[in-house]
């Protein structure tokens, strides 16, 4: 969709990058960046959204993987609640197969390769030069750093973060809310809420035995 006006909401260098990327893809669109800051308790000042009108205007939210990608999700929710359509940003230089599907407010960065029959959820960020193999399912609110390699028919569940140097082998499933931030190849399924960091000696896990919890499920 090509709109006359597009609000691009975010903060700092990431906002600048995203505005530039939209400019390359939609040079005729009136891009209006909105810098949103967080207070000490990480709450956004949403007052600048109050006067925005959604009619014939689109929006795009960009934020990093903070709080397991929930901050970006929160921001997207605010814009959706105000009636905005939020088409994805496929950067110039990204290579996306025609059979691939990309969700709302998702960013496919420059040089990323999205192979055939991939499905990328909404509000997901695929970093520059990332390589997503054929038939991979990337869930909502996922963050992949630049250069991440995801094998074919991999399933990455919602709110996952993959850091620099991570390679996910073919057919692997990464459970929701997990983080893999240690360079190397992961060749086993990872349960939900499992965190692998280079700086931690051992894996960090979350256990919840509450009857309502779906502990261990993707």
């Amino acid at each position: 969709m090509n709109s006359k006006i597009k609000y691009v909401i975010g903060t700092g260098a990431l906002l600048d990058y995203t505005v530039d990327a939209w400019r390359e893809v939609e040079p005729d669109t009136d891009l209006r960046p909105l810098q949103l800051e967080q207070n000490a308790s990480y709450q956004f000042d949403l007052s600048m959204l109050d006067n925005l009108v959604a009619e014939n205007v689109t929006a795009f939210v960009i934020f990093d993987a903070q709080f397991l990608n929930f901050r970006r999700y929160e921001l997207m929710g605010e814009l959706k609640a105000r009636g905005f359509k939020m088409p994805p940003l496929i950067c110039k230089g990204a290579c996306v197969a025609t059979s691939a599907k990309v969700g709302e407010n998702t960013l496919i960065s420059k040089g990323a390769i999205i192979d055939h029959h991939c499905q990328i959820g909404y509000n997901t960020v695929i970093g520059a030069g990332a390589n997503i193999g054929n038939g991979a399912l990337i869930g909502h609110c996922v963050w992949t750093a630049a250069g991440v390699v995801i094998g074919k028919q991999v399933k990455i569940n919602a709110n996952v973060t993959l850091g620099y140097g991570v390679i996910i082998s073919d057919h692997i499933e990464i459970g929701k809310l997990s983080v893999v931030d240690k360079p190397g190849k992961l060749s086993r399924n990872l349960p939900a809420k499992t965190f692998i960091y280079e700086t931690f000696d051992e894996v960090i896990t979350i256990v919840d035995m509450h009857p309502a919890a779906t502990n261990g499920s993707p």
Binding site: F200, D201, I204, T205, I206, V207, D208, H210, A213
Partner: peptide, 9 residues
């Protein structure tokens, strides 16, 4: 009931 845990060596 929800617990996060890890071990530092």
């Amino acid at each position: 009931s929800e617990v996060i845990l890890t071990t530092f060596k």
